[in-house]
Write a protein that binds this DNA or RNA. Structure first.
Length: 478
RNA sequence: GGCCCAUUGGUCAAGCGGCUAAGACGCGGCCCUCUCAAGGCUGAAACAGGGGUUCGAUUCCCCUAUGGGUCACCA
């Protein structure tokens, strides 16, 4: 049974690099019917940010990365917040001291700084037992450090392969801080083991510190988990993702108008590729095909252009009713909340669904609906449509009386289209020469979501005739 | 700087010793079309450089270059 964990620190907004890590952890577990757990790593009390834990919960919920064990939902390996497990770590640290894999250190920060060290000098490694006991009894602040033996460690990563690090490169890291809290390095190992995590999935920035963890596992006699180190994600400038460099957080992306499903789909492909070239995936579909084997080693740059395209793909495939509900606020704002009978919001929404990458594009697309824009008669001139102001005027004056005769009941797209085309024939015009002027008269714009007769149907008889009349006036007709 | 890792078109990427080096986004063109989108077709665009190994290297090895990561009582 595969067990993975997402272990963020509640220090602010949710980075999309973190989100991708969470996504891969979720997918690796789900692909094999495993368990995905959420663990909050809040051992650094000074960096806690109010509400940060809520952001983590909300983000996972919004993206559908539901965890099987963790805060709020519980589980057999709780508690799932490290500060609530504080008392758990010290006994393990003491066990290591007894086994001589760790030792007490009483050096203060000031002392360490004054010694100007590259690496801890093991000043406290060989303190006499009685001296240690004395200091502990007197309440002298201490930390517990891991003793790194001479030698080297080679480990296997599922993505990067075999990696060897000489122990000279590693220092005797602190396991328990002077406030009694474990460091990340220690808590992580203890928790991963006690929570029976089988696959440790994290960013590749942990690659070089992995030997320290392995030494810990060995000191305890525990099995080393499977490691899956993920390639880094860089921003569009090729820099490490950070809040300072713009939209790096999930929330920022939401604010820009990206759909959670599109974000998930897109970041899944940053560092991973599907075997069959397919690119549109829902979370559930990803969970069926995701494979560690297809994760790449090289870091990738975040590209808003492709995400925008992906967003459009997701919008296009939305169920029309779902899309309508999402679009409604934008429709209302662009149509100023009026619901005159010629405006069928559902119909309008459907015309717009395949034309946008973002919902916020809706108002501009429909700005001609509520009010006919001021436009120049040059709009009627279109070379490819073979339309000029003269043909446009002739076309509109010819169609107006014909449309006036159409009853409200017969005011439908197909019917109006046929009438227009027939009218064009009597004038010996190409279809475009009659349709383009009508469309332009109705929209007052170079382009619109819908053609001539479609717009006519959308506007209804009265408003359509009015706009055609306005156009005739502009063109100098009567 | 030491150590670790990476390096295929602008970007995401397939490739796992022999290929006209896929595909996607973006960009250009064409088709379709009641404008614009959508859709279909299509074009330009890449193996960082140098040595090896091999009958043969994008694929394996070494060096160089570039980029990144890491060297905390942060995670």
């Amino acid at each position: 049974m595969i067990r993975t964990r997402f272990a963020p620190s509640p220090t602010g907004s949710m980075h999309i690099g973190n989100l991708r890590t969470a996504l891969y952890e979720y997918l690796i577990a789900k692909r094999h019917g495993g368990v995905f757990v959420l663990r909050i790593e809040d051992t650094d009390q000074s960096r806690l940010v109010d509400g940060a834990m809520g952001i983590i919960f909300d983000t996972l919920k919004l993206t559908g990365l539901n965890y099987d064990e963790g805060p709020l939902v519980g589980g057999d390996y709780g508690p799932y917040i490290q500060s609530e497990r504080k008392s758990l770590y010290m006994p393990y640290a003491k066990e290591l001291v007894e086994k001589q894999h760790a030792y007490y250190c009483f050096c203060t920060k000031e002392q360490l700084e004054s010694r100007n060290l590259q690496k801890y000098d093991r000043h406290c490694l060989n303190l006499p037992q009685n001296q240690i006991a004395e200091k502990l009894a007197s309440g002298t602040p201490f930390v517990i450090r891991q003793f790194i033996p001479a030698g080297k460690t080679t480990f296997k990563d599922e993505i990067f392969g075999k990696i060897t690090i000489e122990h000279e490169e590693i220092e005797d890291q602190v396991l328990i801080k002077s406030d009694g809290m474990p460091t990340y390095n220690f808590a992580n190992v203890i928790d991963d083991h006690t929570m029976a995590i089988t696959h440790v999935v994290r960013g590749s920035e942990y690659l070089t510190s992995t030997p320290k963890y392995n030494l810990l596992y060995k000191a305890f006699g525990w099995d080393i988990p499977t490691y899956v180190h993920l390639p880094l994600m860089l921003n569009e400038q090729g820099e490490k993702l950070s809040k300072r460099h713009g939209a790096a957080s999930f929330q920022d992306l939401l604010d820009m108008g990206y759909l959670p499903a599109a974000i998930i789909n897109y970041i899944a492909f940053l560092g991973w590729s599907s075997p069959d070239n397919r690119e549109y995936f829902t979370l559930a579909e990803l969970a069926e095909v995701f494979d560690i084997k297809n994760i790449s080693k090289s870091s990738s740059l975040f590209d808003h252009k492709k995400l925008a395209w992906m967003n459009g793909e997701h919008i296009k495939r939305l169920d029309s009713e779902v899309f309508y509900k999402m679009a409604l606020p934008f429709l209302e704002s662009s149509l100023k909340g009026k619901t005159a009978d010629f405006r069928d919001f559902r119909k309008i929404a459907s015309t717009v669904q395949s034309r946008i990458a973002f919902l916020k594009e809706i108002p501009e697309l429909l700005d001609f609906v509520d009010k006919l824009p001021e436009y120049d008669i040059a709009l009627f001139v279109h070379k490819k449509m073979k339309s000029s102001t003269e043909t446009a005027l002739a076309a509109l004056t010819a169609i107006l009386p014909l449309y006036e005769k159409v009853s409200t009941e017969d005011w439908h797209n197909d019917n109006l289209y046929n009438i227009a085309v027939e009218c064009g024939k009597t004038l010996e015009y190409k279809n475009s020469q009659i349709l383009w002027p009508i469309r332009t008269a109705l929209s007052g714009k170079e382009s619109s979501p819908g053609g001539a007769s479609e717009l006519c149907e959308m506007f209804g008889k009265e408003e359509s005739l009015r706009r055609i009349g306005v156009a005739i006036g502009k063109l100098g007709g009567t």
